[in-house]
Nucleic acid binder design. Structure first.
Length: 466
RNA sequence: GUCCCCUUCGUCUAGCCCGGCCCAGGACACCGCCCUUUCACGGCGGCGACACCGGUUCAAAUCCGGUAGGGGACGCCA
């Protein structure tokens, strides 16, 4: 057990987004790799926007991905008294002050500054204010040191420095008395003894302000690692507009958690030319130094490829369990049909997602109620009837049991009748599945069972009866 | 606008710190061929990038400077 302590701190204002999941993953990996502690903290200081539904959704997504945490979940709303105490401490030490400017005034000043090409920074109106009107609402601002520069060595991006005069007096307590984000993170990270803060790139600008806060409060400053953003195809920050961004949406689309994890870890991180990483390999090979400095574009094709890989190599029994809800969605009750695992085996090399697998699996549980007419039309009816008769007859009497034996049986029929494999296989495939895109004949027959196979062939035979 | 960050095939990336092994390697996608009773899997091959301009050097994707482009932040959101 090392003394490394990291945390993932989502705000519960929505579902867990893939970008957040990747940040969580990197935190988790570092903790697991080094034997540190991974903490989950819910940043719910924005009481307006935080919801219990979001909290549940985030927790559920973390669990689905298997990103287990060692401590927490902690909630910032439970620490309000603590934050208030520190605000008081800064106020007493002259490191913070009350500001009576109204939101409207500030907004106007901000616009004005932008228009004049200046950085919209708080102008310090209340910084040196003496009188403290008891009857007016106020916020508490941190008195940010204005001299020198604030720099830190980012574990991913290297040294980043900001001139102190760029940093303004940020609000640490709202007029309703609640503390703000930048203040809470600092207190929490300090109290929880976080040693390494791994978070999204969009926080680099907050970092120097937070460092000033750590210093003002007398807390040790942690190490920082800012992971680059995930972009959409148009290189703009990934959003719903680009497609699904919710982790759980990927589950619903039939992705496996290990595929999403593998995809996410390779997005911005690499280990030589390796592409496939099991959970254990990720932990073993993870190194924060190999996280890239630039943003990366989310590419669904590659995710699909990985998902196909994990489906292809997954345990049929486990996949069967994961497939069940997708079948249910299609009104299929696998009870009484072929073994789910057997069905999965025939489809593992043919499906990129569980959704696709479910689509392709339907016919195993429900005989086709129509046939692909165009495909059937390639054969004349007489030939069709002859094929169905020959196959049904042979199957019913041959006593074959394996896919290989069944395939051999078909070859036999072809030899006997002088047919080509395509002339026999295709009609039978249509009779059994309704279409032409299906597993090998032997596999289908063995999975469906001889009885059901013969029944379906008879039905197809009936539909082409003269 | 101001500040911060980023820039290798369409995409994810290796290489960059410690210049030569790189007329740049792998993967996804795409194209072609092979395998094949369908659909897939698989195998083989192809296409395809060091943003640009200068400098340093015998030698630069790798070092230095500038330019351009992209992203992020600038909130009593997190």
């Amino acid at each position: 057990m090392s003394d490394l302590r990291v945390r993932f701190a989502p705000s519960p204002t929505g579902y867990l987004h893939v970008g957040g999941a990747r940040t969580a993953l990197f935190n988790w990996l570092l903790a697991r790799k080094l034997g540190g502690t991974f903490i989950l903290r819910i940043e719910d200081t924005d009481v307006e926007r935080s919801t219990q539904a979001s909290i549940d959704a985030i927790l559920q997504a973390m669990e689905w991905l298997g990103l287990n945490w060692d401590e927490g979940p902690f909630y910032q709303t439970e620490n309000f008294d603590l934050y208030r105490g520190y605000v008081q401490k800064l106020l007493e030490g002259g490191k913070a002050y009350k500001c009576y400017c109204t939101a409207e005034e500030l907004e106007a000043k901000r616009e004005q500054a932008m228009k004049e090409g200046r950085k919209p920074k708080y102008d310090g109106t209340c910084r040196e204010r003496d009188e403290q009107p008891a009857d007016r609402p106020f916020v508490v601002r941190f008195r940010a040191p204005q001299a020198g520069e604030v720099a830190f060595d980012d574990l991913i991006k290297g040294r980043i420095a900001f001139p102190a005069e760029e940093l303004d007096d940020l609000i640490i307590q709202r007029s309703d008395g609640t503390p703000t984000y930048n203040f809470c993170v600092v207190i929490d990270d300090a109290i929880m003894k976080i040693t390494t803060v791994i978070r999204g790139d969009d926080h680099v600008n907050n970092t120097p302000r937070q460092i000033q806060l750590y210093e003002a409060l007398g807390f040790p400053v942690p190490r920082f690692a800012h992971v680059p953003m995930i972009l959409g195809d148009d290189k703009a920050r990934l959003s719903k507009r680009h497609g699904a961004t919710s982790v759980m949406a990927y589950r619903d689309m039939g992705f496996l958690p290990e595929a999403l994890l593998n995809y996410l870890v390779r997005l911005g991180w690499s280990h030589g030319d390796d592409e496939i990483f099991s959970r254990e390999e990720m932990i073993q090979k993870f190194d924060i130094n190999n996280i890239g400095r630039s943003a990366s574009v989310f590419n669904t094709d590659k995710l699909l490829w990985l998902n196909a890989h994990y489906i292809k190599n997954g345990d049929p029994l486990r996949l069967a369990g994961l497939l069940a809800p997708h079948l249910a969605k299609r009104g299929i009750d696998p009870q009484g049909g072929p073994e789910m695992a057997a069905v999965v085996k025939t489809l593992q090399e043919r499906a990129q997602t569980l959704e696709e697998m479910a689509d392709r699996a339907v016919f195993f549980f429900k005989a086709p109620d129509s046939y692909d007419e165009a495909a059937l039309a390639k054969f004349d009816k007489e030939h069709l009837r002859a094929v169905f008769d020959a196959v049904a007859d042979k199957l019913a009497t041959a006593g074959v049991a394996t896919a290989a034996e069944i395939d051999a049986l078909f070859k036999e029929i072809c030899a006997d009748k002088g047919w080509k494999m395509g002339q026999v296989g295709q009609p039978v495939r249509i009779a059994l599945s309704g279409g032409t895109q299906a597993p090998g004949i032997g596999e289908i027959v063995v999975t469906l069972g001889i009885d059901e196979t013969v029944r379906r062939i008879a039905r197809a035979r009936g539909s082409v009866a003269a």
